[in-house]
Structures are given as structure tokens and as C-alpha cells.
Design a protein around this nucleic acid. Structure first.
Lengths: 241, 241
DNA sequence: CCAAAAGTGTTCGATATACACCCATGC
DNA sequence: GCATGGGTGTATATCGAACACTTTTGG
């Protein structure tokens, strides 16, 4: 056998999107400790090597559970990152030695995209620090995590065009048309007129107006709506053809 | 370090689509030898373990070159297959031992989709047998290769909706509207009326009518067209919105 | 009363859909 | 002459695009 064939470690990394109250997309980052000095922390994407009896989808579900305490999150595998140099900076090598074991030659990672209501309580059983970070304020991250995040954003754009209903994974159960509009605008390339958006939304039977309206807002209060996934599945619509 | 973390071999497998003269999609299969008896051959997808200094995209390009002799083929990574039991049948274990080395515990594969004009000469530097197989006649394959092919078909469906121009990777340089229509129909879920298809196609400036027409056909000869990729890039159209 | 966002209708043009007949050719 | 597929036009319906004003509420 050629010694050239790679014997590698395989990991999963998860990009979890949330939508905050300033109408911005956020991503969940955790922190790794670089040195023995506690203050030397650096943000990174949550991830883990996979176990020997685990499929990658299962490993991603495990990482998401360890991260948030949520058992079944929506997730989507989107790309394998295998650049031979993706984990070759001195800091990254040092961290891998401590976290896993010394002399790991190479790690290939499978990246996942996941969605989370930003109000959901984050109950990590593994990480001390789990923080939402607005996507326009992502710091420099280790490995190729910045690249993974950039590609995950392209992926969520494609996703929303294929399956419009993913927006409801990011919104609260009760939401206003305004929130829906701004979330769609934050993700999609397609820009849509506000009035036409309203018209479109009200034509969907699976977006159901509630009797409740906003309170304590410094403008006319908006109506809340809820999403009915069963009706959606029957309707099989896209926002725009 | 937990002994549970997997140290795995990583491979790429390529699903190469072609479009034949009976208007059917085909896939390139190679053969592996199971025993020392030369006749014991079994079809499989072309693939290879990746080298230690290779990115997965590079490995897929290498596999495609070894398969066809073509240097730069269109390719698209579409999914990582990592079921712990995907390579656990006795035949598969026996074959891996012979092809690579004994006691390979697990192989994770990254699957690629590629496209090839079926008239292109196949010049394999590695495989003795390289055959086009119609997708409705794919035999039972080793590993999870049948599953990979099924998912690759879903992927090419999505692909053609995102980027209509991939059909021209499958058609000859000169093609008739009929070929284009039947290829599109073979891939896409969307069914389109023949006359409306004609109308649509002739509205595209990047599909250019040639002076040449079919000869020796038992019906009115169809005009040949060619595809101009530069004009296409400017136009940025989809077949259907 | 002012700021801020909610909510609402109509017109126009483009595009998808549906549909049926005659034409050219080889055999 | 006949079988096979090539090639064409029109009418209708739907959908997306563009566009501005009044309403409600809190401060």
C-alpha cells in the first residue's frame, strides 16, 4: 500500500444561525483555551471529532446537543473541508494536541448548517462559553472557520430559495410580518417590495393571523402570526417562483 | 484521548453522468476484481483513497483523470457518506484488503457529481473496464454505491434548476432542440410543453442556430444549435423562473 | 403633534400554460 | 403514401413589479 494514502481524523463543525432583535443574523461561537492562562481564549465554531461508530449526521446532532441542550435541531450537511493545510498553524496544532492528542497530522471536517430560535435557552453540557455573534462582527477564527462561515451563508441563501419554511425555525412561534420580512431580506438576495410581500404572505393559508398584537411599541402595533407546518406541507409553495 | 475518536481513511467517489443517443442518462462504472479468478468482476463507482497532501476536490479531479483521461472536468462535491457500516460486507472488506491494505476499519467517502459528453473518448490510465450504464439498469453495487447514485440523481435535479447551462456539458457541441428537450426532461421534475420549450429556447441569445441540419434522418431534418457560454454568463437566465 | 412603523389596492407588463396543425424527409 | 418528428401562433391566466397614502400608537 502506498504510504501516501491518508489516515485522517474526521470532525464535524456546526454553523448555527440565529436571528436577533436588531434583525441581524447571528452565529453561535464557543471558546477554546489556548494556554494554561485562563484569559487566553479564542472563539471558534462548535465541533468535535467523530466517534468510531458514529455517522457524520449523528455526530453533528451530538455536537448540537452538547452545545445547546436541544435534542433534535434542524441541520443540513453542506460541505467537506479537507485542505491539507487547514489545521497547520502553530496555535491550531497546539490546541489539537491538548484537546485530542499529540501528533494529529491532519483533520478533515464536515460542515453543517443549523438553525435556532435566538430566544431559545442555551444549555450547554460541554462548553462554558456559548455566544451569539452577529455575522458582520465575526472575529478572526482558528482553522478555516471563517471560510466555513462564509460558505454557510451562501448555503443558507440557497436553502431559503429551495425551502422557504426554514425561516420559521429562526423566528419565534409568534412573529410579525415585519420580522418575517426582515429575516427574509437578511438572508435572500432577492429584494421584494414591502407591500407585495404583505400581499404574498396573506395569500398563504399556512401563515395564520392571531388575535394578539404587539404591545408597548412606539408605533402602531403589528399583528402576530403563527406558522402551520402541516398546512405548509400540503401547499408546497415557494415565496417567489 | 478517548479511543472512541475515529482514525479513518478518506476516499472520493465520482458519479459521472452522460446522455446517450436513446435519450437516457448513463453513469460511468468501472469493475473491481473480487477473486483471483479473472471473471469475478463486479461493477462499482470509480473512486480512490485520497493522498496525504491532497484536498478532496483535487482527489476527485485525479480520479476523473485516471478514469477518462480528461484533465479538467466539471465536478461538484455533493455529500459525505460516513455510515459506520457502509463498507462492512465480507466482499467489501476482502476487496479493500487487496486494493489498499488489510485491517482497514472504516472508510468515509466524499461523493462527487461530474458530467461528460458521452461521445468523448474515454482514455483510462487506470481502469481496464470503463462502461456507460443506463441509470435504469444500474446493477447491485458494492459499499453504498447504489445509495450514492440515488442521491446524485437528486443532486443533478437541483443543479439543473440552479444552473441550466450544465446541460451543455452533457450534449455534443452541435445539438438539436429535440436533444436539449429530452435531456432536460430526463433530468428535471418540471415538465414543459414542447412548443413552449421551443419558444423559450429561441428567446435565448446564447443558444445559436447553425446553418447545418441533420442528415439521414427518417423525418424532417432538425437544425443544429450551439451554446455560447460567454453570452450565457452575461444573460444570467434560468430556463424557468 | 410628531415620529415610526402598520397596513392597504390598482395598474401594467411579462411570463407560463394550453392547445393543433402543416412541413420535410427517408423508407 | 406513410410514419416520424420538426417547426410554428394565439389566446388566456397568473404572477411579479411598481407605486403612495392613511392609520395607529407612544412619547
Amino acid at each position: 500500500m502506498s504510504p501516501n494514502f491518508i489516515h485522517t481524523y474526521l470532525s464535524v463543525d456546526c454553523v448555527v444561525f440565529g436571528f436577533d432583535h436588531d434583525n441581524k443574523l447571528n452565529i453561535l461561537l464557543v471558546k477554546r483555551r489556548l494556554d494554561d492562562v485562563p484569559k487566553e481564549m479564542q472563539s471558534k465554531l462548535p465541533g468535535s471529532l467523530i466517534f468510531s461508530n458514529e455517522d457524520v449526521d449523528v455526530a453533528a446532532q451530538r455536537v448540537l446537543f452538547e452545545l445547546t441542550g436541544i435534542k433534535k435541531m434542524v441541520l443540513k450537511q453542506f460541505k467537506c473541508f479537507a485542505d491539507p493545510l487547514r489545521a497547520s498553524s502553530p496555535d491550531d496544532i497546539k490546541w489539537m494536541s491538548k484537546e485530542y492528542k499529540p501528533n494529529i497530522d491532519r483533520i478533515v471536517t464536515v460542515a453543517y448548517l443549523s438553525l435556532c430560535k435566538i430566544d431559545h435557552k442555551i444549555n450547554s453540557v460541554k462548553y462554558v462559553t456559548v455566544d451569539w455573534c452577529p455575522i458582520d462582527k465575526i472575529p478572526s477564527l482558528p482553522f478555516d472557520h471563517n471560510k466555513i462561515i462564509n460558505e454557510s451563508f451562501l448555503e443558507i441563501r440557497r436553502w431559503i430559495e429551495t425551502d422557504f419554511s426554514i425561516v420559521f425555525e429562526l423566528l419565534p412561534k409568534k412573529f410579525t410580518i415585519r420580522q418575517l420580512y426582515q429575516l427574509y431580506s437578511a438572508i435572500s438576495e432577492k429584494k421584494i417590495d414591502k407591500k407585495n410581500f404583505h400581499k404574498k404572505i396573506s395569500s398563504f393559508n399556512y401563515i395564520i393571523p392571531l388575535d394578539e398584537i404587539e404591545s408597548n411599541v412606539a408605533h402602531r402595533a403589528a399583528r402576530y402570526y403563527k406558522f402551520d407546518s402541516k398546512l405548509f406541507k400540503k401547499s408546497n409553495t415557494k415565496l417567489l417562483k
